[in-house]
Design a protein around this nucleic acid. Structure first.
Lengths: 229, 229
DNA sequence: ATTAATATTTAACCGGGGTTAAATATTAAT
DNA sequence: ATTAATATTTAACCCCGGTTAAATATTAAT
């Protein structure tokens, strides 16, 4: 049976798989907020359903079927996040929790409706890529704002939604996908960055900057518009 | 725990309570599509949670707490139905099934959002009353279209959503809440009714007419606009 | 008032998803 | 290579929501 729990595990495995070849029991337990024992049992169950290949003591990987389901659930989740923010006025740090519950119950029709209403978007409100209905995942930026050299001109592409409080802070700083940013200065030893956002000078913590992913503007990265101090 | 199952039972009891003083095990079993044994167990559980008063062999009634929960769930359901139809373009015979799943997972915030977007409506897409946040249920029409005398002028107020196929048919006849209808003729022995809807002559089955609830237009019910044949 | 029909409850079971505690593998360290 | 630390699995248990089959109440009928 494709229960909400099964979908959640599959989604978690999908995400952990991007970091490690094989997903360990403990990593899954931590991510799902359950115990290792519960994970072991579920992995056996998922293997039974042909959603993962599982070697006891050596972790699991999604099967093609498992991956398909993961992408469907992630598509639901991210479309919902965007819809909640765009159509219903949710603040972007709250959409994740609501989408987490809705993703398991909406029909294909509902998914299609909101996708249409949103104009078949490729990225959600945080800039996370929305898999297409046939499972294609749009490319997304991987360089952090924190890693940028002083003087660089970048566009924000994505903000990690892992921590709602941080997300809120980052949003208040004006660091949202699509926003252009110039790195004006960096305090040494892990200090904050000084940025120019929308013509205004802004200071952001390095932790925040580590959770903001950007794309460099080729044209501006060499010849800067206004020289940094 | 307030699970989806608990909410569904409470909602079912609420609806059955309007027809009979006390809700029997078998009536609930039929409505929830389960067995009498499952119902007995759940009734004990609900009594434990103080959501019903339950006398073995003599049925159950909602407690004040149970009624509150029932009204909350019904409010979710009907707001969702209206939202799905109005904002998302669902056909009105499909909204029930989708709302059935969503009603258990949306947050108070979600509820408030769609209520606001819909302009704090009092009736859903079928004309069913939406309980207010403090549990007030708007009054609704109880006379059926079928029961109306020839020559009567009425306004459709509500259409039973019990049968999706029938609902679809009724909708195609143009019998939607707010529509004005004049009863032109009635075939004897349970035959169909001839109506004037929107200036057009329409014939509807008696079964359909029994599922349409109307309000008589006081002004027109005596002096008719155009005489029936 | 007794019997028959019907409704309801109880008992034993199952699957899903979780827990803790104990047993067992694996990995790291000496 | 053996030991110690750590990760994983197994076992026994819990709750939830359902099932079927048997036992028991209630209601209807004679």
């Amino acid at each position: 049976m494709r229960t909400a729990a099964v979908e959640d595990y599959v989604k978690s495995i999908y995400k952990l798989q991007t970091e490690t070849e094989t997903v360990s029991t403990s990593a899954l337990a931590e991510r799902t907020g359950t115990t290792a024992a519960a994970v072991t049992k579920m992995l056996k169950h998922l293997a039974q359903l042909n959603l993962v290949s599982y070697t006891p003591y050596h972790g699991a990987r999604l099967s093609p079927m498992g991956e398909t389901i993961a992408l469907e659930v992630i598509r639901h989740h991210r479309l919902l996040e965007l819809y909640l923010a765009q159509a219903m006025g949710y603040p972007w740090e709250e959409v994740d929790a609501e989408a987490e519950k809705l993703e398991h119950v909406i029909s294909e029709e509902f998914e299609e409706s909101i996708a249409r209403l949103l104009g078949f978007p490729e990225f959600d409100i945080h800039g996370d890529p929305i898999p297409s209905r046939d499972g294609q995942m749009p490319k997304t930026a991987t360089e952090t704002l924190e890693a940028q050299a002083v003087g660089t001109q970048v566009v924000v592409r994505r903000v990690s939604d892992a921590d709602a409080a941080l997300l809120r802070y980052v949003g208040e700083c004006g660091l949202k996908p699509g926003v252009e940013v110039q790195i004006l200065a960096r305090e040494p030893f892990g200090g904050s960055l000084t940025l120019e956002i929308d013509g205004l000078e802004r200071r952001v913590s390095p932790q925040a900057a580590q959770n903001v992913f950007v794309e460099r503007c080729a044209a501006q990265s060499l010849g800067m518009k206004s020289a940094p101090q």
